[in-house]
Simulated assay, not measured.
Amino acid sequence: MTDDEPSCCSPARDDSATASSGRSAASNNPTPTADAGRETSGGETTTPDTSRMRRLPSGSFRMGTDSDVGFEEDGEGPAREVVVDPFSVGIHAVTNAEFYQFVRETGYTTDAERYGWSFVFEDFLSTEAREHVVGNAGGADWWVGVEGATWFQPEGPDSTVKDRLDHPVVHVSWNDAVAYCEWAGTRLPTEAEWEYAARGGREGSRFPWGDDLEPGGEHRCNVWQGGFPDRDTGEDGYRGTAPVDAFEPNGYGLYNPVGNVWEWCADGFDPAYHETTAAENPLGSAGGEDGESTDDSLRSMRGGSYLCHESWCNRYRVAARSKNTADSSTGNIGFRCVVDG
């Protein structure tokens, strides 16, 4: 995160001045690429479960925004016509239950587990968890590194997801998301696919349902209410994550494309995305040497999270973009999957 970009979105591991890495140099992740997730590590194609997916036809749509509401430094525009091939997309983000099945069958260890810590929103910490704090994110004291915070223990060692199995999995890095997709026979969506799906067939609207955040006073997504970061009133029914199928789906039947948790995309992040990528099936550069991914490669995220508020981040709009490094994990980043055709 730069000094002028609110760290409420999601801090990167190098944002923490005091949290140290306990990660071993060895890694059980294959070197991920933009196409990762299409085959298993053994080269055998996995048949994906598409029962909770929606197939979207090939189409063109106006991607990005020229609105003054957008963040110029994020490269939200200029808006342009983009074409995507047909694909199927998960109707909701990957759940804790689904990620548990992946871990149980593969023995996978996440980046947060290898590092020994992950970022947790400070208000969620218990007295016991506060004893495991190893640092703060630079410029955003509400983000703290907590030893033992993982996808299974989202707020630290004395927490569990056992009563949140239908919530989106969090504390997963881009590397972890790619590994899950490889196992499931799926892949991460490109930014263009993500926005095409999130818009639900609506052209130019700010949100999947229109331009008003709360049409008719109805809460349509899980974001922050109140004054950030001091108090979340929880008027939408949630403080922290909500079930993946909370609120009404968009026009394509997709739940929570905005709010709840950020969703990793396949693309490398570049503020010049709209000016440098192709008009058909665009994909941002992975970054790193020769375009290969590295842990400090910036990856794109979409959709905002339960910590977004118009007074601070305002990145829960369908055209909004954010970024983080491929090995970073926080309590407000998850992902959903797609398959070709």
Rank of each mutant, 00 (worst) to 15 (best):
D3Y: 11
D4L: 14
P6T: 12
A17W: 11
T18K: 11
S20E: 15
S21R: 14
G22K: 02
P30I: 02
P30H: 13
T31E: 14
A34P: 02
A36P: 02
E39G: 07
S41G: 01
T45N: 08
P48T: 03
D49T: 12
T50F: 09
R54K: 15
P57Q: 11
G59N: 08
S60V: 14
F61R: 04
M63F: 05
G64E: 15
T65D: 09
G70E: 06
F71M: 01
F71G: 07
E81G: 04
D85G: 02
F87N: 11
S88F: 07
V94R: 02
V94M: 01
E98N: 12
V103K: 14
R104Y: 00
R104K: 08
E113M: 04
Y115P: 02
S118G: 04
F121G: 00
E122T: 07
T127A: 11
E131N: 14
W143T: 08
G145E: 07
G145V: 09
T150G: 04
K162W: 13
K162D: 12
D163M: 10
D163L: 08
L165C: 03
H171F: 05
H171E: 14
D176M: 04
A177W: 01
A179L: 01
C181Y: 03
A184T: 00
T186F: 00
P189H: 00
T190Y: 09
Y196K: 14
A198E: 00
R199L: 13
G201S: 07
S205L: 03
F207I: 08
W209G: 01
E214K: 14
E214F: 10
G216Q: 14
C221W: 03
G226K: 12
F228T: 02
R231P: 06
R231Q: 10
D232N: 15
D232I: 00
T233V: 09
T233I: 04
T233N: 04
G237D: 04
R239C: 01
G240D: 05
P243E: 09
G251M: 11
G253A: 12
P257L: 06
V258I: 15
G259A: 10
G259K: 00
V261Q: 03
W262T: 05
W262M: 05
W264S: 14
A266Q: 05
D267N: 10
G268S: 09
F269G: 07
T276M: 04
T277E: 15
A279C: 03
E280L: 07
A286D: 12
E292F: 08
S297K: 06
L298F: 12
Y306K: 03
L307I: 00
E310T: 09
W312H: 13
Y316Q: 06
R317Y: 10
A320C: 09
S322W: 15
R336H: 12
V338C: 02
V338A: 04
D340P: 05
D340G: 13
